[in-house]
């Protein structure tokens, strides 16, 4: 048994992981959520703004991290639209454009009153990593002269009076890495005191904690926080209860639980082998 486990081909572990993630998805397992204080902070940052506030949706993620961040981004978009906020979509990731379009599809389908140019606008992508943040924080038009459809910002009602993003009431950033939340904190929210909330991947959440709560009003870390956010949203807006598209993150928590437990078992088994091996003198 010991030698079998010690020399175990890692492909067996891959197989185990595959099964562990597959079964809950096929079986459709769901678990209840209990929103943490941090998630409530993020929720209230959006909820407590007067209806119709200006929100800058900086969606800096790409298809690679879609599985983790897309449910979160959709929840943000849905929440803002429920509150009637004005949304300014923007991305610093070249692959982010079509993902913004999917968020806009959500608005078109569920909020027929929302009108392009009046209630939401897509400013598209700009190159230069954190460079565009430095420009739009003092002069939006120097970097973004037209929206994705080629319409000048002076002709769009909701951007006509906007000179820079200091005029936004909140920045909502969904970030998969660099450029992302850290850059928004460094070049926009800290030097110009713009209220910011962030939703980010599990890997980047821990290093954003030093910014909370002074420089970031809240952080959603990974799919778990997204699930809690969806849960809070359903609590507040019960009409979403029967909408499966509003519960994508909640659904993804099934494989999450089983996989976490599996990983813990793997670490324990791995260490047992290690200690047995050490007592037998196999490992130096």
């Amino acid at each position: 048994m010991y030698t079998f486990l010690r020399d175990l081909d890692r492909r067996w572990i891959f197989l185990l992981m595959g099964i562990v993630a597959t079964v809950p998805i096929l079986a459709g397992w769901r678990f209840p959520e209990d929103p943490s204080p941090m998630v409530r902070d993020v929720f209230h940052a959006i909820e407590d703004l007067p209806d119709g506030s200006r929100i800058f949706m900086a969606y800096d993620y790409d298809p690679a991290s879609q599985g983790e961040l897309h449910p979160m981004a959709l929840a943000f978009t849905r929440h803002c639209a429920l509150k009637g906020h004005k949304l300014y979509f923007f991305t610093l990731w070249p692959q982010g454009g079509p993902l913004i379009q999917q968020n806009i599809r959500l608005i078109e389908r569920n909020f027929p009153d929302y009108e392009y140019g009046e209630d939401y606008v897509n400013l598209g992508y700009r190159s230069g990593q954190e460079g565009p943040i430095k420009v739009i924080v003092t002069d939006l038009r120097k970097s973004v002269a037209v929206d994705v459809n080629g319409t000048s910002l002076s002709e769009i009602p909701m951007t006509r009076d906007i000179r820079n993003i200091q005029q936004m009431d909140l920045i909502v950033n969904v970030s998969a890495g660099y450029p992302g939340t850290k850059e928004w904190v460094l070049y926009a929210s800290t030097p110009y005191n713009i209220e910011t909330v962030a939703g980010c991947t599990g890997v980047s959440a821990p290093y954003l904690y030093p910014y909370y709560p002074e420089q970031l009003a809240g952080i959603l870390g990974a799919i778990k926080a997204a699930a809690e956010y969806e849960y809070t949203l359903i609590e507040e807006y019960p009409q979403l209860k029967d909408d499966p598209t509003a519960q994508e993150a909640l659904r993804r928590m099934g494989p999450q639980l089983v996989a976490h437990v599996t990983l813990i078992v793997l670490i324990i088994v791995g260490n047992t082998i290690y200690f047995v091996g050490r007592s037998r003198g196999d490992v130096t």
Binding site: G67, G202, A205, I223, R252, Q256, H260
Partner: peptide, 21 residues
């Protein structure tokens, strides 16, 4: 950090599996 990262990575796999299934 490790614990948080695991969480994210599993979600990505779940996303892909959902696409396939």
């Amino acid at each position: 950090s490790f614990g948080y990262t695991v969480m994210g990575r599993i979600a990505l796999l779940a996303g892909r599996l959902e696409f396939l299934f």
